[in-house]
Amino acid sequence: MKPPPFEYRSAHDSTETVELLTEYGDDAKILAGGQSLVPLMNFRMARPSVLIDINQTQDMTGIREDDGHLVIGAMARQRVLERDPTAGVAVPLLPAALAHTGHTTNRNRGTFGGSLAHADPAAELPALLVAMGGELTVKGPSGTRIVPAEDFFLAPLTTTLAYNEILVSARLPRLPSGTGTAVEELARRHGDFAIVSVMAAVHLDSNGRADLVRLAAGGVDSTPIRLHEAESVLSGGTLDETSIDAAATAAADASHPVDDVHGTASYRRDMVRVLVARAIRSAIANR
């Protein structure tokens, strides 16, 4: 299980990264934390002829608040993000979701942007971005563009990133105070990719009616999915067992999972129903 040969280039910043990507074209891959790419290379399932290492770059790090948003640099290590007090307060889903992302050793090296760009449909961070309606900042030869999270993920391991573009950061809206959040994940073992994961955020107005509902699921389609139908069921209403069940059913109906060795499509769909209901209840309880 030794990787195939490749040419190694280390980029100094995002601009140089884009230049190198442009120079090498489709043969090049960006090496960030390496927690997903390198296993694929060791299995010889990925064989880029050039690796552009961005671990020495300094312009894509940083976690800061900006105008009601949390802005996270693509090179922020997942473990740093998980323990960052600003991030945890602004988006409580972050530490909760990251606790399910591999093990601490993976998160030590693994980057925020790397997980998004890798676009595993069962990974937590993509589902979180989709749930939060996050926006991704993508840099290419002609400058940067902003991509809404729901438009960023196209298929398993496929995003809208062009061959010569790099994800540099993402923005997540800060949730109003009093918002309850929850991550419910079913995985075979702690740290495994989710069979199904659900991210939920719920805010109630003074009359106890939901004025903010965010729901997304991972592992149940070719990309993480925002559960709009389920959100609609809940929005503007009181959250009781009837509406939660209806939302859970709507969520299950909206998912299109496939079979794999850890669970059939129908099992996954069932689990969406179970976990969505649990996540909503937990989010309400966590307010």
Binding site: Y8, L31, G34, Q35, V38, P39, N42, L51, D53, N55, R79, T104, T105, N106, N108, R109
Partner: peptide, 13 residues
Amino acid sequence: DVAARSCLTFAVQ
């Protein structure tokens, strides 16, 4: 000082 999997890191890095 940070725990890392040395099978997922290239020596050059």
